[in-house]
């Protein structure tokens, strides 16, 4: 019997299948590419080739596209990514006290105490120092984002890059390039800048205690990990499944929920991957809020609805204004 966790992030959509002993039996790491519904469907299709729908006992979705994924797949629980990352790390190694998580759009620090989240912080409005910044710089330097780590490790004397803001950092990088600094030194300097920015911004005022665990997509970058180790002067653990920790945590939460509440799953089955799902948007003019309502439809039926403040479009299918 398995539990399914889906993490729909800005950059990647991850799916994890976990058995009842909380071991990952299968994992998928797909690019979201701005189309979360397609990514979830693709994931379900791929997993559907190996597993049967009735083998899934519970499902939980997380990530910024969690409610969308929940509507598509029929989730039992919908949880925010901070809780799922915390749970995943606590299950992976109960001794972990600090989690550094850097994803595509946001970076967070989560402090654990006996496996319970004690405190957390997230980057505020700016996405400087996250995965998308690295992506962009790799593209500009003509490298794949996976190569950055190896380049950083080869650096002899990293240059100093301003890491406060992505725009400043970029112009600083260009400037250093034109001075003739080597690619390796620049990339190492960029990694250091990212770490400095993280520690002075996201982790400001937080006590970082070992064991420190580094997860999220950026954890694959060896150079950043090294920079963190140097800055924090302690070993940093990168879990084997660091990319899919959010999905893993949500699978654990799905199991907890199903076992505690003794419920049957609402999972719609892997067949959903072949369904045609369409979205429609319209501005509701019934009250002063003017919500931009998004409606999700499959096979002519409404399967989900978002951003209506009053919640009146949620329950049943209703007649929509003509303009849709």
């Amino acid at each position: 019997m398995y539990y399914l966790g889906i993490d729909v992030g800005s950059v990647s959509t991850d799916l994890v299948i976990m058995n009842e002993k909380r071991r990952i039996v299968d994992q998928l790491y797909l690019k979201t590419r701005g189309t979360p519904i397609e990514a979830v469907k693709e994931g379900l299709r791929q997993l559907g080739k190996k597993y049967k729908s009735r083998e899934i006992d519970g499902i939980c979705t997380t990530g910024s596209g969690r409610s969308l994924a929940a509507a598509v797949a029929g989730a039992d629980v919908v949880k925010n990514e901070i809780t799922t990352h915390g749970v995943a790390a606590a299950v992976y190694d109960p001794e972990i006290r600090t989690i550094i998580e850097i994803g595509g759009q946001d970076s967070k620090i989560i402090l654990l105490n006996d496996g319970v989240i004690r405190d957390f912080a997230m980057n505020t409005v700016c996405a400087a120092g996250t995965g998308s910044f690295l992506d962009r710089q790799a593209e500009r330097l003509g490298l794949a984002v996976q190569e950055l780590g190896a380049y950083a490790l080869r650096a002899a004397s990293p240059v100093r890059i301003a890491g406060r803001c992505a725009v400043f950092a970029e112009s600083d990088i260009i400037h250093k390039q034109q001075l003739g600094c080597s690619m390796e030194d620049i990339i190492a300097g960029m990694s250091k800048a990212l770490v400095r920015n993280y520690l002075s911004n996201v982790a400001k005022g937080k006590e970082i205690e070992p064991k420190v665990c580094f997860q999220g997509g950026v954890a694959a970058n060896e150079g950043i990990r090294r920079a963190f180790e140097e800055a924090l002067e302690c070993d940093i653990l990168v879990p084997e499944y660091h990319k899919v920790m959010g999905a893993y945590g949500s699978a654990v939460i799905a199991q907890e929920y199903i076992e505690e509440e003794n419920k049957k799953t609402r999972f719609k089955g892997f067949e959903v991957g072949h369904d045609d799902i369409s979205t429609g948007t319209f501005e509701c003019t019934d009250c002063s809020n003017h919500c931009e309502v998004v409606i999700l439809r499959s096979k002519g039926r409404q399967i989900g609805c978002f951003s209506d403040r009053c919640g009146k479009y949620q329950a049943t299918e209703i007649k929509l204004p003509v303009s849709v």
């Binding site: 949880k79 925010n80 990514e81 901070i82 809780t83 957390f120």
Partner: peptide, 8 residues
């Protein structure tokens, strides 16, 4: 963020 705060 709010949800995670309330959750915690």
């Amino acid at each position: 963020r709010i949800e995670a705060f309330v959750d915690m």
